[in-house]
Simulated scan of single mutants.
Amino acid sequence: MKWASLGWILLGIILAVAIWRGFPPFQIRSNQFPGILSSSITPDPQHVKIEIFKAERKLILYQNEKPVGIFKIALGFSPIGDKEREGDGKTPEGDYAICYVNDKTPYLYFYGLNYPQGKDIKRGFKQGRISQRQYQELIDNNKNNGIPLWNTALGGEVGIHGGGNLWDWTKGCIALSDTDILILKKYLMIGTPVHIFP
């Protein structure tokens, strides 16, 4: 009897995790978040951009300037406002690009954004959050389109990844269901522009 109860508990936990992360067949689609808009679309990463609307928890995927997918997202645990510092739980706002890809992550895939960027760096320096040396390193790195310093008081390692989109739970990243990050994987590459609106 004990083993049967333990089995049901374990099964319940597995199902809860599957639903949270959005594994098929637990992928929820709606008119508002339909996913890819047509099954006949052939991914062309060279001509892709992303727009993220924080207030609507929506990611729109564009290819050749036309929307080809609309996905539900989760944000940082304190999503209102622009990211200013490490640990504030905010998702940054502005123009970024994918600068790093990690396929060895618990979130299936991680597409790192080049946060902090110009406005973030200048604001952080003005507020005294980063040193002159860090300011210069961040500015130089931006000019070379490299991975920014992610270990300053401004925070870093902000990206787009899987892991679940039922509520705002990240430290500042944009999270999708695992199913959706596997779809986006076909479209994204280093250099893909990402604009994040409030």
Rank of each mutant, 00 (worst) to 15 (best):
M1N: 08
M1L: 04
M1E: 14
A4L: 15
S5C: 07
I9Y: 07
G12P: 00
I13Q: 02
I14G: 06
I14N: 06
I14V: 15
V17I: 15
A18P: 01
W20D: 03
W20V: 02
W20Q: 11
F23G: 00
F23S: 01
P24R: 12
P24Y: 07
P25R: 11
F26Y: 12
F26I: 05
R29K: 14
S30I: 00
N31T: 10
N31V: 02
F33S: 10
F33I: 07
P34K: 10
P34L: 02
P34Q: 04
I36G: 11
L37H: 07
S39C: 01
S40T: 15
S40E: 14
I41R: 12
I41P: 02
T42N: 11
P43I: 08
D44V: 06
V48A: 01
K49D: 10
I50N: 08
I52P: 00
F53Q: 13
F53K: 12
K54S: 07
E56D: 15
E56V: 00
L59D: 12
I60Y: 02
Y62L: 09
Q63T: 10
N64H: 14
E65L: 13
E65C: 11
E65N: 15
K66E: 15
P67T: 13
P67D: 13
G69K: 05
I70S: 14
K72V: 02
G76D: 08
S78W: 05
I80D: 10
I80S: 14
D82Y: 00
G87D: 09
D88N: 07
T91H: 04
P92S: 08
E93F: 03
C99V: 14
Y100Q: 09
V101M: 14
D103R: 15
T105F: 02
Y109E: 01
Y109N: 09
F110A: 01
Y111H: 06
L113T: 03
Y115C: 05
D120P: 07
I121F: 09
I121Y: 10
R123V: 06
G124W: 07
G124D: 07
Q127M: 14
R129C: 00
R129F: 13
R129D: 02
I130A: 08
R133M: 10
Q136T: 12
Q136W: 08
Q136Y: 10
L138C: 05
I139C: 03
N141E: 12
N141A: 11
N142A: 15
N144W: 05
N144K: 15
P148Q: 07
N151R: 13
A153Y: 09
G155M: 07
G155P: 01
G156F: 05
E157Y: 13
E157I: 11
V158T: 05
G159S: 02
I160E: 04
H161T: 02
H161K: 03
G163K: 06
G163N: 06
G164Y: 08
G164F: 09
N165H: 07
N165L: 01
T170Q: 00
K171P: 00
K171H: 15
G172Q: 04
A175W: 06
D178G: 00
T179N: 11
D180H: 05
L182K: 15
I183E: 09
I183P: 00
K185Y: 11
K185G: 00
Y187V: 05
L188R: 04
M189E: 11
I196D: 04
I196N: 04
P198Q: 14
